[in-house]
Design a protein around this nucleic acid. Structure first.
Lengths: 362, 362
DNA sequence: GTGAAAGCGCTAACAT
DNA sequence: ATGTTAGCGCTTTCAC
């Protein structure tokens, strides 16, 4: 807390023997300043340790170079990755994010939007899990006086700017991998079906089954809420079915880890007795027992792309809404075993883009 | 992006038939406004949908009601919890946090501090892992024109405001629990010893051993870097020692989970063959195989306390630096078994504050 | 209790 | 290429 007294543009102008505007031009990197004048001003700036007051700049220019970032949950790994990617891009472009936490409560979002609007952010990024609250969210967008970008949700029919992962394709990829390994009885632990991502992943699951001519068994689909605990409980529910399934597709890794725990407790071996595939590729997935085969989505890139899009929208006022969908990657580890029966002849080799990981490297 | 045109205080004043200052008084909840005038103004505000411009307010009042939050790593669970707690408190007090990510690089912190200073934040919270870079950090504080609070670091001899967890006491608690269970040969997987938290936890480990008259075996202490992978590798290093240890204290849960993976691979049973205790109580700890006994520290509360302290410092310009140290809690699960030998008679029952958790509840 | 005047520190026109 | 004149929307100080 040293006394760096407030050097203003005025004092720099005085010190450099120029007018305030010339200093303004220099700090804004305008063309129309004579090289020597620029240098003289720059020297004065350095000498005095002048730092332009961003608040005053914001008031005069009506651009705060500040963005809002309202997330659903800071503690979820996927969200923190989005934040990481978004912050990085913002930083590169000279923006800051102001943070809001809606704590998974969609009602909080309009409040944050209002608050952020009062603070004259140039745009807002919502990192969320969207679902049945579509209408509410559209109202939100309608009330926004600034550009808004959303992650974790997309509807191609709506003119909103979105960066999301193709959940349906990712889920298809997961289930197709199980199918390629001969599994025909595949259970599913879903995320909360109020979440669009879970809806889409479930759709991908069904689609993959249907493409292979396998009928859908609703008893093998149990709803969780993305927590490890819910995966554990979902697994217990699955135990109460006919238990004929040979593999499980979990809508995220945390639930898969919970399921793994229940599986172990029940004395079942993974993947010998039962295979499981997760989704997200959280860091712990690699060190689950056994290491979890999963679907990776680059959430950092989602955040980065969302911030890039938002800044684009901010800096190009006329720009139209864009929807960006990123792909997923199959990560091969040890929680899936082949399961060949007479009814499931060995299919052609996988054509999926996939990577294998080992614990011993790096 | 609707056209909520900018209603200003001027138009409210006009509409209410009062002066600008009266409106200002109303929105700032000053006493000296006649009740009926206040109501008339309030009605105008509501009618016009007026939202005070926080930027202009900041410029005039020289208080932005904005704070900086510079973290080491958004992807670390402990940090995200700090962010959660801090944001919540800020929100309650009408502040916003601007986000910075130093990505574990102490050199980034001064840059962020400068940038945040330009934006006239009222204070800055550094959520960090401190260690050998003390001097650099002190320079940082010296260059700060605003109050600063730090988490993840404390030195009682320095006049800086700090909210931290008592790592040494927490580690002692962990090791004492192993001792109470009869373990006498206790290995340790440490965090990076450039981090103060790891240094303190190692000190707590040694202290607990010394208190029981057990000599320190440096071969059983392997340094990791808080990642699961490093725990896995550390475990492999421990296998190359005499392997006489019966228990392991890991400086965090992620490394413990990595160690667990190596232990399983080596065909060792936990806790029958070897006990392990972690630190942090991350959500996955409960669903490790076996569920991980660990030390919980309330990082949300750390963040909340830090934000509270920061806001206190901001709003009470004369206030002195404070150091807050929070305690830890032993969480009993299934990764520790008693290990009784002739040399370790059953001690008195534990006097630790401890909680037991089950997977089936909730 | 209320209003008029004077900025906060900067940028954006328009001058020259 | 540089300076002059006006604000941006609010708070503050000081009148009345």
């Amino acid at each position: 807390m040293s006394g760096v007294k407030n050097i203003t543009i005025k004092q720099v102008a005085l010190d450099a023997g120029v007018s305030i505007q010339t200093v303004s031009r220099v700090i804004n990197n305008r063309y129309d300043v004579a090289p020597q004048t620029r240098q003289r001003v720059q020297e004065a700036i350095n000498r005095l340790g002048y730092q332009p007051n961003a608040i005053a700049r914001g008031l005069a220019s009506r651009r705060s170079r500040t963005l809002g970032l309202v997330t659903y949950d800071f503690n979820d790994y996927a969200f923190t990755q989005v934040v990481t990617g978004a912050e990085e891009v913002a930083h590169q472009h000279g923006y800051f994010f102001m943070l809001g936490n809606s704590k998974c409560d969609p009602c909080e979002e309009p409040k944050y939007l209002r608050l952020l609007t009062q603070r004259h952010v140039d745009g807002v990024l919502f990192a969320r899990l969207a679902g049945l609250d579509v209408q509410e969210f559209l109202n939100l967008l309608a009330n926004s006086s600034v550009p808004v970008v959303v992650t974790g949700y997309h509807r191609r029919d709506l003119p909103i700017s979105v960066v999301d992962v193709d959940n349906q394709a990712g889920a298809r990829q997961a289930v197709e991998y199980l199918l390629e390994n001969g599994h025909r009885q595949i259970a599913c632990i879903t995320g909360p079906l109020s979440a669009q991502s879970a809806i889409d992943r479930l759709a991908g699951y069904r689609q993959a089954l249907e493409n292979t001519g396998i009928s859908y068994n609703p008893h093998w689909v149990v709803e969780g809420n993305f927590t490890a605990r819910s995966g554990y409980l979902a697994m217990q529910k699955l135990f109460q079915t006919d238990r004929q399934f040979t593999a499980i597709f979990s809508h995220n890794d945390r639930m898969a880890i919970g399921a793994l725990s229940a599986l172990h407790q029940a004395g079942l071996r993974v993947p010998e007795d039962i295979s499981i595939i997760g989704y997200d590729d959280i860091p712990e997935a690699e060190f689950a027992n056994p290491p979890l085969t999963t679907i990776r989505q680059n959430m950092v890139e989602i955040g980065a792309a969302a911030a890039r899009l938002l800044i684009h929208l901010v800096e190009n006022p006329g720009a139209a809404a864009e929807q960006v969908l990123l792909g997923t990657q199959l990560v091969l580890r040890q929680s899936v075993h082949p399961h060949w029966t007479d009814f499931s002849p060995h299919p052609a080799a996988s054509h999926h883009e996939a990577i294998e990981t080992q614990q011993s490297d790096g």
